[in-house]
Simulated scan of single mutants.
Amino acid sequence: MHRSFTPPRQVKIGDAAAFAGTTPRAIRHYHEIGLMPEPERGADGRRRYGYDDMIRLLWIRKMADVGISLDDMRAAYDEAGSIEETLDRLDEALAAQEAVIQRQRAAARRLREAGSPLGLLSAVVTDRFRDLPPGAVRQSDLDALLVTERLFGSLGAVVQASSVIVLATHPELRAAEDRLDAAEAALDDTVDPDDPRVEELAEQRCAHMKAVEQAIEAAGLDEVEEKLYELDEAAPKEDEGQMTALEGIGKMPSDFSPARTRCMELAAERYGRSLSGDD
Rank of each mutant, 00 (worst) to 15 (best):
A185S: 13
S162A: 15
D195R: 07
I165E: 07
R197K: 07
K210G: 10
A211F: 01
Q204D: 14
L180Q: 07
A176Y: 04
A175G: 03
Q204R: 15
I165L: 10
E184I: 15
D194N: 13
K210I: 15
V164S: 00
E199V: 15
V159C: 11
S163L: 03
H170W: 06
H208V: 07
M209D: 08
D181T: 14
A175K: 10
P171L: 00
L173I: 07
R179W: 03
D188C: 14
A175T: 11
D181F: 10
D189N: 12
R197G: 09
A186C: 07
D181C: 10
M209C: 12
S154I: 01
K210D: 12
A185P: 00
A186S: 13
S162Y: 01
H208Q: 14
Q204S: 14
A183I: 04
S163Q: 09
P193N: 06
A183C: 08
C206K: 08
A185I: 07
F152N: 10
D194G: 13
E199Q: 14
A186K: 06
E199T: 15
A211D: 06
T190Q: 14
V158Q: 04
L167H: 04
I165M: 11
G153V: 08
S163M: 07
L173K: 08
G153N: 06
R179L: 06
V164R: 00
R174V: 01
S163Y: 06
D178Y: 02
V166E: 02
S154P: 08
R174T: 01
D195H: 13
Q160V: 14
V191R: 03
D195A: 10
L180N: 10
Q204I: 01
A161H: 01
D188G: 14
A202E: 03
T169F: 02
A176G: 09
R197P: 01
L173C: 09
V166H: 05
S162N: 15
A161E: 01
G153H: 04
D188T: 13
E203A: 15
D178I: 07
G153Y: 07
L155A: 03
M209V: 12
V166F: 02
S163A: 14
I165A: 04
A186N: 09
I165Y: 04
A183M: 05
V164W: 00
L180T: 10
G153W: 02
E177F: 05
A186T: 07
R174W: 11
L180V: 08
R174E: 13
P171N: 02
L173Q: 05
S163P: 00
A175D: 12
A168I: 09
A202W: 05
L155P: 01
V198P: 01
A182M: 12
L201R: 00
T169V: 06
A157R: 07
T190I: 11
L201T: 03
D181G: 13
L201Y: 02
V159E: 15
D192C: 09
T190V: 12
T190M: 11
V159Q: 12
A175Q: 12
